[in-house]
């Protein structure tokens, strides 16, 4: 349904996309994750026809989106990073206009507006001007516009930025339902828990390339390790800080309560070892938390692997 092959894009001399390959099947949700500047927005913009590519192919439902972007737009729904709505018009007028643009006929347009408004909790706000809506309501309306015509490919670029928890949940639920109806969804974000909640697959975009692709759980189980978070009264003991630094996977904010996160293989056994090694410093220990492996830790490990350029075994041996 969405097929991207060897996509390259440079701005001046900076190569943002270095040959991206990505296929998204009908009904699949792909969490496109990467740090700021990884190229997520550039990638979604090229797919949506907002930017040109230097090289590569983008096919949407069999249509060459780079050669014939307008033909591909019929199959595409886009909710870009910035909310794009007419503030002086009502929510209903916004949906009605964009519904007309995608040739939804009168009755089906009205029905779809009611459906998406209902599923995203917007029904009560449809008659209000967008400028009077809250940030979360605008975000949901912004996404509703993209979903209105049931596009075969839905691109959501950071759709929950600035949205409240309620809006976020409604949106995620609707995205899942949308995919279940057969659409291919690309969900670009750097909120890892959202991708885990969506339960789809993951594509990690790092320095212009997809460096990991697969089912969310399999990525986590393959790359992520559990960790323990220790909080100390005062600063984190030097040895432990060094250890965490040596592992290059710890963090601490080192104020009145110093914290450090340490990846472990066998939480209980490894924690016991750490406490013994701490000696008298263990008396300053105030709390211990176990963290399950997550997409975030998997992401950190994958990107570090990429940065070092080492094979997995070599990387593990070094760290």
């Amino acid at each position: 349904m969405l097929e991207i092959k060897g996509l390259k894009k440079s701005y001046d001399n900076h190569e943002v996309l270095k040959g991206v390959d990505l296929t998204v099947a009908p009904g699949e949700i792909v969490g496109l994750i990467g740090v700021n500047g990884a190229g997520k927005t550039t990638l979604t913009s090229i797919v949506a026809g907002l930017r040109t590519a230097d090289e590569g192919e983008v096919t949407i439902c069999g249509v060459d989106a780079l050669k014939d972007p307008h033909a591909s737009h019929t199959h595409l729904g886009l909710a870009s990073q910035d909310v794009g709505l007419y503030p002086i018009l009502t929510g209903w007028q916004n949906l009605d206009f964009f519904g007309r643009l995608v040739a939804l006929r009168s009755q089906s347009r009205k029905r779809r507006i009611e459906e998406v408004a209902d599923s995203l909790g917007l029904t009560d706000f449809l008659d209000k001007r967008v400028e009077t809506l809250s940030g979360g309501q605008r975000r949901r309306l912004h996404a509703a516009v993209a979903m209105l015509h049931r596009p075969s490919v839905l691109l959501l670029d950071e759709p929950t930025v600035g949205a409240d928890i309620q809006s976020r949940q409604k949106l995620l639920l609707e995205v899942r339902r949308f995919a279940a109806e057969g659409s291919a969804v690309v969900y670009a974000t750097h909120y890892f828990p959202e991708v885990e909640t969506l339960g789809g697959s993951v594509a990690i975009l790092h320095e212009g390339r997809i460096v990991a692709r697969g089912d969310c759980n399999s990525i986590i189980s393959r790359y992520a390790a559990p960790s323990v978070e220790l909080a100390f009264e005062g600063e984190v003991p030097t040895d432990l800080r060094e250890f965490a630094k040596l592992k290059d996977q710890g963090s601490e904010d080192g104020q009145s309560l110093g914290r450090v996160v340490i990846p472990v293989r066998h939480p209980g056994k490894d924690l016991a070892g750490i406490i013994i090694d701490l000696g008298v410093e263990a008396s300053r220990l105030r709390s211990v938390e176990f963290h399950q492996p997550s997409l975030e830790t998997a992401f950190l490990r994958i990107t570090r692997l990429e940065n070092t350029g080492l094979a997995e075994e070599e990387f593990d041996a070094v760290t």
Binding site: G49, L50, H70, D82, Y86, P87, F98, L101
Partner: peptide
């Protein structure tokens, strides 16, 4: 200003 231009560009409108 309203970021709707990108929306129009990504729509089937010529």
């Amino acid at each position: 200003l309203w970021n709707t231009w990108e929306r129009l560009r990504a729509s089937p409108a010529l």
